[in-house]
Design a binder for these strands. Structure first.
Lengths: 247, 247
DNA sequence: GAGTGGTCTAGACCACTCC
DNA sequence: GAGTGGTCTAGACCACTCA
């Protein structure tokens, strides 16, 4: 039941309790990405609070990109498969020097199973030796290779993933993981470094061995801050840059 | 006067009008960084709206790091000179591999006047040939050089800045610009690339010529999205990484 | 026209800070 | 105790969407 008094030592305001109830609905799959959730009035009745309190809960979740409000229509669960292009490439910060908008071309190279080593098990919070899936792929912009990615996924969550699925997938990888496996990426942490290209990477990216590359390690999280993806990307920044907003 | 009807073609809700009135107070210096602004009730009376409307305006500005609310005390203008360390290094994303928290050591090298060239005039939105000030400095972490910065400031705004001021400045550069010149940096855009170290930079950073470095160009903005700083930094990412949150 | 989210108000009570 | 921001409520009206 909802707590109504402020005297509790673990007090959290009503709207946060409502927020975590809505969050439960998202985690449990009661409302799936792209779908509408009940109206503010319905939720207010269901949870026995005022509409304003539900509104404040939803406000916060909309600010966190978990929900999307559409006036006159309803409130939707955010999805990487949204028609909106901004939502689709929300996690890709690479921009061309030319300024032209370029849609990346996705070229999956390999996809195989393996067992989690020290690092993968620590980062993905799975057992040492647990099954994982490794994907290697190339991203091209304007027909030129710009990014090599190596992606580690926990095998138990993303069991049936194959190279064919990746090749046939129109949208982004996250869109695929969301619609096929019901796992939505909420946020990610990236660690950036400058490194020198090894021979293999240089060949794939069409640069000289030893050329400077941007190395980006990313850990992505789904609901409840559960890590579900670890990837390392090598970016050729000859004709592109990584754009970041500080605020 | 405030507009009360929705029929206007340039309609914006009341709380946004209040927001921009408060913003004017910040821009004009009526309330300076670190000071308290009037209470929600006072502002509500002054602007002839309800307290809830003022609250919503302040909510947005607090979310944008323009204001800081402190329960029981009041609402403060955000400042780079806050005691809070997070606020002080809000724009520095560099983290040590070791995980230990390191306070950077600031070593100003040079500070001279010049005239804006093509690029500086375009980026800082000033006239070609207008006076600018150029600063070069080194950042050390744990006694080791990690960052070289070259900083371009419009000369008319930051007229009296000297190498001595930079050397005597305890906190961050932005804290100095704020307290000495009344210009507060609100947000910034960074463009990241991997490049090869030239001879001079390599010597300063203690790496080999040609070693990969992280190049970061930053444009910082004050109120009303006015650009007031352009800088280029070269980061040695041997023992540090650039941390970014995507979400 | 019915239903949705968006804005605005007024009033109550709570928690925190400082005197 | 007075003053501040924080929470919660109830109700009114508006703008947008869709049938």
């Amino acid at each position: 039941m909802l707590q109504g008094t402020h005297s509790s030592p673990t007090f959290s305001p009503l709207y946060r309790q409502i927020k975590s109830l809505i969050l439960q609905g998202l985690e449990s799959g009661e409302w799936r990405p792209g779908e509408v959730i009940p109206s503010e009035n319905e939720l207010a009745v269901r949870f026995s609070v005022s509409q304003g309190t539900v509104r404040k809960a939803i406000d916060e979740m909309a600010a966190e990109n978990l929900l999307i409000r559409r006036q006159g229509k309803g409130t939707y669960v955010a999805s990487h498969n949204d028609a909106d292009q901004h939502e689709k490439f929300r996690f890709l910060r690479l921009m061309p020097d030319s300024g032209n908008v370029e849609t990346p071309e996705n070229l999956p190279l390999e996809c195989w199973r393996a067992k989690a080593g020290q690092e993968a098990s620590r980062i993905l919070e799975i057992k040492l030796g647990a099954p994982i899936t490794i994907i290697r792929r190339l991203l091209k912009f304007a027909a030129k290779p710009v990014v090599i990615d190596e992606i580690y996924l926990p095998g138990e969550i993303f069991a049936g993933i194959t190279l064919e699925m990746l090749q046939n997938c129109q949208g982004s990888l996250y869109g695929l993981l969301e619609s096929q496996f019901g796992v939505r990426m909420i946020r990610a942490e990236e660690r950036l470094r400058a490194i020198a290209a090894d021979r293999a990477s240089a060949a794939l990216l069409g640069v000289a061995e030893g050329a400077p590359l941007l190395s980006i390690e990313r850990v992505s999280f789904t609901y409840a801050d559960r890590p579900v993806e670890w990837r390392r990307g090598l970016y050729s920044t000859a004709d592109h840059y990584y754009l970041n907003q500080l605020g």
